[in-house]
């Protein structure tokens, strides 16, 4: 992420939404399969419903300044996804929106992201090490705070998702399985990593083009 002040244009935001929607759609089956193994088999379907809803409303959302657009996208997720991931991803985006100034640089983004992750933990009454999306969100937050490059942040996310495989779930549906949850990747962690990677790729491409 560039160290200079950034303001996402409406076009940027639309492009980002399109990229995230496409990434979720392409991986929906895989996400659902992960959830079939240790959950109830709907995670891909849920995420797709949410990002399709955001995309359907992208014009209105992207008319707003970035913080408000993030809040609006979060509210869309809350109102369209349901399940555990709806309130959690919704809270993530909504809190990010609430905490971000209109023009922001890397440090401000990292601060806002940290607040957003804490809000997710509060909403989910959960913490790190419980085999949930937090196990990707916290490492990503730390990497951002440490000023890592977008490529590095993306790698952290991917590794963190991978690292949920040997964990025993303590929160979310997978917790019902106890020890049997070991050996499978947490679906929500997989979508977090996917979204982080998608955003990182978009930023890299843009920086490269610039």
């Amino acid at each position: 992420m560039s160290k200079t002040m950034t303001r996402l244009t409406s076009e940027d935001m639309k492009a980002l939404i399109g990229a995230m929607q496409a990434a979720i759609a392409e991986n929906a089956e895989r996400l659902t399969a992960l959830d079939q193994a240790i959950g109830d088999g709907d995670h891909g379907i849920n995420m797709k419903r949410g990002f399709d809803a955001i995309a359907a409303d992208a014009d209105a959302i992207c008319d707003k300044p970035t913080p408000q657009a993030l809040s609006a996208a979060g509210m869309k997720l809350v109102m369209s996804v349901g399940g555990a991931s709806g309130p959690l991803f919704g809270t993530l985006f909504m809190t990010l929106g609430k905490s971000l100034p209109e023009d922001f640089e890397c440090g401000a983004f990292a601060d806002a992201f940290a607040k957003a992750v804490d809000a997710v933990a509060a909403r989910g009454k959960s913490s790190a090490g419980q085999k949930t999306m937090l196990d990707v969100l916290y490492p990503v937050s730390d990497a951002l705070a440490a000023g890592k490059s977008v490529g590095e942040v993306a790698a952290v996310a991917a590794e963190a998702a991978e690292a949920t495989v040997p964990m025993e779930a303590k929160r979310g549906r997978a917790s019902f399985l106890g020890e049997r949850s070991i050996g499978h990747m947490d679906p929500g962690s997989c979508s977090c990593s996917l979204l982080v990677n998608t955003i990182a790729a978009w930023i890299s491409a843009k920086e490269h083009a610039a």
Binding site: S80, V81, G82, G83
Partner: peptide, 11 residues
């Protein structure tokens, strides 16, 4: 009623 096996949304 939420979607199949997915809790309803707050609205």
């Amino acid at each position: 009623p939420g979607e199949v096996f997915t809790s309803p949304t707050p609205d």
